[in-house]
Nucleic acid binder design. Structure first.
Lengths: 223, 223
DNA sequence: TCGAAGAGTGATATAAAGGTAACACAGTCA
DNA sequence: TGACTGTGTTACCTTTATATCACTCTTCGA
């Protein structure tokens, strides 16, 4: 089951989208704290994100840029200011689509489906990332390798998702910190180290030695 | 270099797109045989496909469905018939986006780039410098040559970036000193020598002998 | 209410990177 | 050629980044 997160200050629209998306069998979270978007994003870890541009406190462009620092999650902008400049700006910030308000709900849903399909592979109905024969199901947070199931904690799962979403590339410790604990609560840097360590132990025990590599002075990598 | 294929019977549009896409460093094929779309598709094997809906012989929906039987290539529809029903239909056929005619060329290009990025991984966009077949990934400090990966330390990376950005020109030791240690802390001049030495050893070991040359009394050069 | 699991903290251990000094070697010029 | 200066090489030491371990605190359910 895919998770959809919507950041939209018009409660009417947010509600309508939520209702319709639920009908499409999507789990929906409508953000209401427009200062804590990053925290909610990290918590909910959606498979797709709908972003309004005009928001209280910070605008959609800001959140898009922030989120793109740590995640490749598909992003669709929803905005009444749908002139060419805004569209181009959004795309350059890493957005995947741009829908003008008011929009037809069926069109939105069709685009959401298309983007989910594009991102999480055509055939599979489940968002699964594979590497070295290990299958990470990002929907329910299970890792399967060699027929055995490795159970991960929240923290371990988030770390692994972030690394596997970016496999082949180094993910900085800073990014992981942001993704796990969003700046409001000050968490020791070492806590990340410890959590990576715990994750590695589980992977090792399952026969996945060296699954997570260290790039000294930079971060971690799965490759 | 990505290949873009456009299926469009208005030669003016096709040409304009081809021109603009070339400027974006895309290889372009404009289909002219509207019965042999599949053959041309197979021949050219594009990374992305732009499809008009109203075409001679068969319409864009037909080709989209045909192509989707064998390929997951990203498809963007271009059409003047951009009502909701058409959009939904296109998306359900496996399209990735739908752009109404007439369209702004910059918007089209932004969407093409976004879709290529989404489909062929975000890696494109990471600043990479090339020389003598060696690729320097400035984001995570790795140098790839002959299939093997050389990991560099912070200092080594900075030196190499500075030299490769100025390839063909001699970079003074003074300038490297400035770039590595920002004047506030007084660092021995020899430290630079040592770091260059360490970098050279890694390059030599990877088969890149003489990658960094010395200009006696001036500085270092990559050429 | 007890115990197990998850999560954060601090202390300490280890490994990697960076800096320094001593000396060797190479270009330059009288 | 020999003195001088710039650069290369090596060994050693300091600093910093990461790993590991032991402990605490919280939550949650039996």
């Amino acid at each position: 089951m895919y998770r959809l997160m919507i950041v939209e200050d018009d409660a009417g629209i947010a509600e309508a989208v939520a209702e319709r998306a639920s009908a499409w069998n999507l789990e929906v979270r409508a953000v209401t704290d427009f200062r804590g978007v990053l925290r909610e994003f990290a918590e909910f870890s959606p498979h797709i994100l709908l972003l309004d541009i005009s928001l209280p406190f910070f605008d959609g462009y800001y959140w898009c840029a922030e989120i793109r620092r740590a995640s490749k999650v598909p992003i669709i902008f929803l905005s009444s200011a749908a002139d060419n400049m805004n569209i181009i700006m959004a795309m350059n910030l890493g957005a995947d689509d741009f829908i003008a308000k008011p929009f037809d709900m069926s069109v939105l849903m069709a685009k959401v489906q298309a983007l989910l399909r594009r991102t999480y592979d055509f055939a599979a109905g489940v968002p699964v990332i594979e590497h070295r024969g290990a299958l990470l199901n990002t929907a329910d947070g299970t890792l399967v390798f060699n027929g055995e199931q490795i159970s991960l904690t929240q923290n371990e799962l988030r770390i692994l998702i972030c690394l596997m979403e970016n496999k082949g590339r180094t993910v900085s410790r800073e990014r992981l910190m942001e993704r796990l604990w969003n700046t409001d609560s000050f968490v020791d840097e070492n806590t990340l180290t410890v959590n990576v360590n715990r994750l590695r132990k589980k992977l090792d025990a399952a026969g996945l030695e060296g699954f997570i590599g260290t790039k000294f002075g930079v971060g971690y990598i799965v490759e």
